[in-house]
């Protein structure tokens, strides 16, 4: 949080929606995203660029929003973790983090997702070393990174079309209560 300053109008596209906001001219991008845009998925871990939790994409490039003045990125297209999914359809990277243990407490997850999505956009066949280089600015205290790297590799497979992209959980699916085919219609009188 920075001291009071004159107001200015800031415009940008966040997750494909355009915003025009009255912000402090010295406002940090992280504060604008969390407090004014309302993308609370962008996490504040350290304010010093040391943890990577606040990573967002600015015109496709991963960037630490806590080290970036909002004014520096006006009129850009910003993508936060909220913008990765296609409606209810999770992005492959999201589905794989959930499925392969890439997320435990989940606080660092948004930053990792954005950083790794940026990697996969550039390079759908990364080596483990390339993945490590892409996420080296992100700290995770729960997973020890191993399952994160596995998750990114699995997502890369979906990007390369080797594995099918999982369907959204909210898709219609059959009645969960089967009346089996051999369902007997019991005559009365067979109670205990």
């Amino acid at each position: 949080m920075t001291p009071s300053a004159p107001k200015t109008i800031w415009s940008a596209t966040v997750n494909k929606k355009s915003f025009e906001l009255l912000i402090n001219s010295n406002a940090v991008l992280l504060d604008v995203l969390r407090d004014q845009v309302g993308t609370l998925g962008v996490k504040r871990g350290c304010d010093l660029g040391t943890c990577g939790c606040c990573t967002v994409m600015v015109d496709g490039e991963p960037r630490l929003s806590c080290l970036c003045l909002a004014g520096q990125v006006s009129d850009t297209a910003i993508t936060t973790v909220e913008g990765l999914a296609n409606g209810a359809h999770l992005a492959p990277i999201q589905a794989c983090f959930a499925k392969y243990g890439g997320s435990q407490c989940g606080f660092c997850t948004p930053g990792f997702l954005v950083a790794s999505q940026a990697l996969l956009d550039d390079n759908p066949s990364p080596t483990d070393q390339e993945i490590a280089d892409a996420i080296e600015g992100n700290l995770c205290r729960c997973t020890g990174y191993q399952q994160i790297i596995e998750s990114i590799q699995e997502a890369a497979k979906i990007h390369r079309g080797e594995v099918a992209h999982p369907q959204p959980a909210s898709d219609p699916h059959p009645d969960p209560h089967p009346d089996g085919p051999g369902e007997p219609s019991m005559p009365p009188g067979h109670a205990k």
Binding site: T39, L40, G41, V42, K43, R44, T80, V81, E82, L84, A85, L90, Q94, A95, F97, A98, K99, Y100, G101, S103, Q104, G106, F107, T109, P110, L113, A169
Partner: peptide, 21 residues
């Protein structure tokens, strides 16, 4: 199994302390 709350976490919808407004 994946964690039952993992979809909330990977979409940024999990609400942590500072997310309660």
């Amino acid at each position: 199994l994946s964690l039952v709350d993992s979809n909330a976490k990977v979409t940024g919808q999990a609400w942590y302390g500072d997310d309660v407004r």
